[in-house]
Design a protein around this nucleic acid. Structure first.
Lengths: 149, 149
DNA sequence: CTTGACATATCAGGCCCCTGATATAATATA
DNA sequence: TATATTATATCAGGGGCCTGATATGTCAAG
């Protein structure tokens, strides 16, 4: 390094940078926790969504995860390849492929749920209930501000 | 879709999900703002870091951005290919390649800085100064909780 | 001086995400 | 009915991130 070894913040004091750091730290923890199960964070999110809405289409999954159908297709293809998910043609709609969890998928999902819940709990274990509520509301206002104008 | 059309949240009420949404919304806005300049959000972050610390090594850049040296190498290679950044061998250390901005890199960085600052300002334009401080502190406590035990 | 620990750069392969483009099924409209 | 629009799936290519492995340069301990 050259001048400031222990100073990683490019724009210190910026809220956007702190949000990025929080998301990054959370993502690292989740990745480590579910890697032994053989799935990634995006795959976990998809397993959750399919479990909540069995028979969901790839396009609907993409909307739920705020990604493009192309991105979702890659995740679903990998889950199908690994036997955690199954796709069958919709009898009513000739184009939709209905995704369902396999027995193996449900098993992995259960274990992942527990691991992720533990991480979320640890993240807030020094925050009072009111503070969690405050944080959630302030973040939501930021999101609204970004999506509005 | 099957049961709940307009309900995208897989684990509604979870703080981790809200953090992810905020980061995602911010990233989308930044991407849109700097795409016309021909750079991506990670590339912008690297330009900032190189501008703050001219002659920085690839490994130091990776540490600053919390990514692996391999990941950083790809970004730096693309920036070099696009003529926004230049790398020269360190005269004192036979292995380090010192990164510097080109004239073109400085020009793009200036425009990107303005665009990103505008987005950050919009994100918090309905929040009082005290609320921004609260949000930042609460997020930092979550980060600490995640990285500690 | 030799050896070993560490830092740096880089290659290979995989996952996730994007934009752009294409093909087909379902539906609305003229 | 015929056409246009919309929805869905998918191919192609690129950027950014990861783990694992490799090669070389620096430095300290023996």
């Amino acid at each position: 390094m050259s001048s400031t070894p222990g100073m990683p913040a490019p724009v210190s004091g910026a809220l956007g940078y702190t949000i990025k750091l929080a998301q990054h730290a959370l993502r690292l923890q989740v990745d480590d926790a579910i890697r032994p199960l053989g799935i990634t964070a995006p795959q976990f999110a998809v397993l959750v969504a399919v479990d909540l809405d069995p028979g969901i289409s790839n396009a609907a999954l993409a909307r739920a995860a705020f990604v493009t159908p192309q991105s979702m297709q890659g995740i679903v293809a990998n889950l199908e390849r690994d036997g955690l998910l199954r796709r069958n043609a919709d009898p009513l709609h000739g184009r939709i492929l209905r995704s369902e969890l396999t027995r193996s998928g449900r098993s992995v999902l259960g274990k992942a749920h527990a691991a992720v819940a533990e991480i979320e709990a640890r993240m807030t274990n020094s925050l009072k209930r009111v503070e969690i509520e405050q944080l959630s509301l302030l973040l939501q206002r930021c999101i609204d501000n970004l999506l509005r104008p």
